[in-house]
């Protein structure tokens, strides 16, 4: 029998595993630096994994916990990215201030867009989020003088002390902080409320919940975290581009959430890391395999949708429960 008091909070075993993995993640770059160019490449890859993991987790606050399918989450990722890019490149603001501004600006964007979107449910919600994000994409794409349009914004400065290794550590620390905040959120009364609405939106109204208000707040929170992720990726790449707002970018956290497991907090991050790793692994295995990466991704997704909608975490939990 499931003891649901522990549904999202970790058991003792999970705590130990968590500490070991965290310690490993902190040590990893120090080991990798000994491997020259390859090591540096892998530090870059793992930094990207961390950032995209944060992005996926942010989406999952509305997707898995809130039951709201958004096809436009990249809008907030992109807003965060361009906030950092524009503030640093055009206004000469320092990195830390820019990184602090990213979630705020993205949260504001989410407040505006979300205000309209939460009035709709299900499919219509999904389409409206898509419409808004594509609208934003088109604007960034067309507004050449401000956003650089198709070319994006390049050459974003990086403070001296933030080499690849230190930047990795910065991202990791921020990831852990965000994870802990999100963990508190999903375990709080607010988190329970959000799950209540996911489970039965109509009934939720009849237990006195102003459903739209809570969905809106959740949407804003999710948008803010996405904005931070976007800002971090911009600084990692040292450029921002329209791709960050494109609908295909919105798909990435969905895929990650689904593969990792959208009914858990960490699942989406694990899922995105697995997908990024898989892509690189296939590249190493055979160049031709990356040519058909989308086909492979699609097939993975098909299998997950049809046979394991709980994702990797779901599979793990099933196996764990049976033993």
């Amino acid at each position: 029998m499931v003891n649901n008091r522990n549904e999202y909070s970790s058991t003792k075993r999970n705590w130990i595993a968590g500490i070991i993995v965290t310690a490993g993640l902190f040590l990893l770059p120090f080991i990798l630096t000994n491997f020259g160019k390859t090591g540096e490449y892998w530090i870059w890859v793992t930094t990207e994994m961390i950032i995209m993991g944060l992005f996926a987790m942010s989406l999952n606050l509305i997707l898995g916990f809130g039951g709201m399918v958004s096809f436009g989450h990249a809008a907030f990722f992109g807003v965060g990215a361009y906030t950092v890019a524009l503030l640093m490149k055009k206004a000469g603001v320092s990195l830390f201030f820019a990184l602090a501004a990213a979630p705020v600006v993205a949260g504001l964007a989410a407040a505006v867009i979300g205000w309209f979107c939460v009035r709709l449910i299900g499919l219509y919600f999904a389409i409206l989020t898509l419409a808004f994000s594509q609208l934003l994409y088109m604007i960034v794409f067309q507004w050449y003088t401000f956003t650089g349009g198709d070319d994006g914004i390049h050459g974003i400065p990086r403070p001296e002390f933030l080499g690849p290794l230190n930047y990795y550590l910065l991202c990791l620390v921020l990831f852990i902080i965000c994870f802990l905040i999100m963990r508190m959120l999903v375990n709080s009364s607010f988190g329970l409320t959000i799950r209540t609405i996911r489970e039965n939106l109509e009934r939720a109204k009849f237990i006195g919940l102003n459903v739209r208000r809570f969905q809106w707040l959740n949407f804003i929170i999710a948008g803010s975290f996405a904005g931070l992720a976007g800002g971090l990726l911009t600084e990692l790449n040292r450029f921002s581009q329209t791709e960050f707002l494109h609908w295909s970018k919105s798909a990435e956290p969905i895929l990650g959430s689904l593969v990792g497991g959208m009914y858990s907090l960490l699942g989406p991050a694990i899922g995105s890391a697995v997908l990024i790793f898989m892509k690189i692994f296939l590249q190493q295995l055979h160049k031709g395999l990356v040519e058909i990466w989308a086909i492979i991704l699609g097939l993975v997704l098909l299998v997950v949708v049809l046979f394991a909608p709980g994702g990797l975490v779901g599979i793990y939990e099933k196996a764990f429960k049976k033993s």
């Binding site: 909070s9 508190m184 959120l185 709080s188 009364s189 607010f190």
Partner: peptide, 14 residues
């Protein structure tokens, strides 16, 4: 929680 309007407690574990 809804009856006592406690839904906006964002951080304390329910």
């Amino acid at each position: 929680i809804s009856a006592r309007k406690g839904n906006l407690s964002l951080f304390a574990p329910f």
